[in-house]
Design a binder for these strands. Structure first.
Lengths: 325, 325
DNA sequence: GTGAAAGCGCTAACAC
DNA sequence: GTGTTAGCGCTTTCAC
């Protein structure tokens, strides 16, 4: 094998492969040359068996698979994860929680099959995964609702601030009768964005009573807008908790002949294709989704490596101005 | 360990775990009892090392990750795959081709890290993966464009027939001036659906010149419809190669005040949320996406097991009648 | 800094 | 049918 060609022992080859610091530079070179020459690829299973490291990271996908995949946010985050990991030895394993009974997922995760897990669900009832963090390195994308346990690592954006910015933008452009279509109140993103809207409106001395709730979907946004109109409320500015919601709401407004931004201005969160392609295109808050995924992966890898890592990483957001205000 | 508790040798335990047929029934029971009692979970890496089976299946995701995830079709197929595999010992590994250079993906697949691969890309230029099939069990979701090599296993629907059915539905409902918005002509789904439209129209003695091409996306469908209208063509029935395309096209028609199905009737393929939520809702062809995923996984697993498998599995489709005709 | 030797936990001939 | 005996290909003390 490689050892013979490089004229060293198997141990030394192993050390080189694992980037051990105490190998003579010349030897490192010789071994690497031999590796290239022989097109040597270390056997994963053998490494895992001997070292107890699986070099595998699980990506846990929540129960509602359909909606999960429908949301461009997740797609992008996953892509970011995959991009980061592709530069490492780690492999991504998909764990679809819904399909395999919860117990099986849990046992798989605890059974030494993975070195760590990435959790992309946001539901407050997912306390189970928070608990998982005590026995396995875990990083959450988005703060699990409830509150942050000490042991919990999170990569998120400041949803309160993002919502405030988006709302203030409406106010700064002369809108005074504000409404919001809020997301689910069992996810931190839903809660925080509503909170941000309230704070911004409150700070400007505006009425904060026009609130409709829905899930993060286009059809949900449409339904919520119908309810809002049916309620008899009048408003000239709407902050939607996501661009999917806004997109559905805009459809309804167009149907009713209400002009945007003429009669009603809109801002939202998420700079996805809904924001870009809705009519009119949306002024919105961009989250660095790819980078969030990358950061999640990086955090987990460093956690696994035993490094000290910040329990909370807040990614920056950015206002994107388009035609809806 | 388990062997001791059950009063047998490690080999016998192994045989039971691997469901060997020649173990005495009583012994099987005793061993299983011990397994439950001890909460024993076999070590994956050790099994892999000793048996050369990785118990891992790769899901290869094509270059265009963003669009891939945006398409509910894929999401559903993946879910089907995951559901089937959850009942087996196999694990799903996500391989995002775009992020890791192609060579790396290929080497990973050939490097003995997986027992087989599922390929969900449809591009004709993906011949690379067709070649992969010579060295690894591979199952394609959707026929790779070009033609079927002998060595190639495919799970697909009959896109030609589906398009014919959808087109005939328009004809049967009195539409005579037919147009189509076709998908990319470098994917079999795009090619076959256009072909089906042509055949159905031809068979009815209708004009087949009104064709616009686009990708399988909402915005693409909108653009194509704009071009179709700009071309001055008049038509009273449109077959769209996907519901996403139809959805975009409908947006444009609504904008222009053209009524559906009054002025123009629509049919499409894919019974996803676009078909359900577009205005009006779409008469469309349903593909059994979950089942396709399951069938792909099943085919691959049986292939790996060395069983004889049909190289081509055609899944049934179903017409769903809604309000667009 | 490097080599020798001892497993990691399982499967797979091979005997019995 | 079941136990015995070797490894699978690496990592990792432990000496040197």
């Amino acid at each position: 094998m490689v050892a013979a060609l490089a004229g060293v022992s198997r141990s030394t080859v192993s050390r080189v492969v694992n980037a051990s610091p105490r190998v003579a530079p010349g030897v490192v070179e010789a071994v690497n040359a031999a590796i290239v020459e022989l097109n040597y690829v270390p056997n994963r299973a053998a490494r895992t068996l001997a070292s107890k490291r699986t070099l595998t990271i699980a990506l846990v996908i929540p129960e509602n698979t359909a909606r999960f995949f429908a949301d461009p946010y997740f797609a992008s985050v996953i892509q970011g994860v995959a991009m980061y990991l592709s530069a490492t030895d780690y492999t991504l394993t998909l764990l679809i929680a819904s399909e395999t009974d919860p117990e099986k997922t849990r046992r798989y995760l605890q059974g030494g099959n993975v070195d760590g897990a990435l959790i992309l669900s946001h539901h407050s009832d997912d306390r189970s995964y928070v608990q998982l963090a005590t026995s396995l390195p875990v990083v959450f994308g988005g703060r699990p609702a409830g509150h942050a346990d000490p042991n919990t690592y999170i990569v998120d954006v400041d949803n309160v601030a993002a919502a405030q910015t988006a709302t203030r933008y409406l106010i700064d452009h002369g809108r005074r009768a504000l409404a919001t279509i809020a997301g689910p109140q069992n996810m931190s993103a839903g809660i925080d964005r509503l909170d941000g809207w309230r704070r911004a409106a409150d700070a400007a001395g505006l009425d904060v009573s026009r609130v409709e709730y829905t899930d993060f979907s286009v059809s949900g946004g449409a339904d919520a807008m119908r309810r809002l109109l049916a309620s008899g409320a009048t408003f000239d500015g709407v902050f939607a908790a996501s661009s999917q919601i806004a997109s559905g709401a805009l459809d309804v407004l167009r149907e009713r002949g209400i002009s945007v931004p003429g009669d009603v201005a809109f801002t939202s969160i998420d700079n996805d294709h809904y924001a870009q392609n809705s009519i009119p295109s949306l002024t919105t808050i961009e989250q660095p989704t790819l980078e969030q995924g990358g950061k999640m992966a990086e955090t987990l890898v460093r956690l696994i490596a035993g490094e000290e890592v910040d329990p909370l990483t807040i990614m920056p957001t950015k206002l994107i101005e388009r035609s809806s205000v």
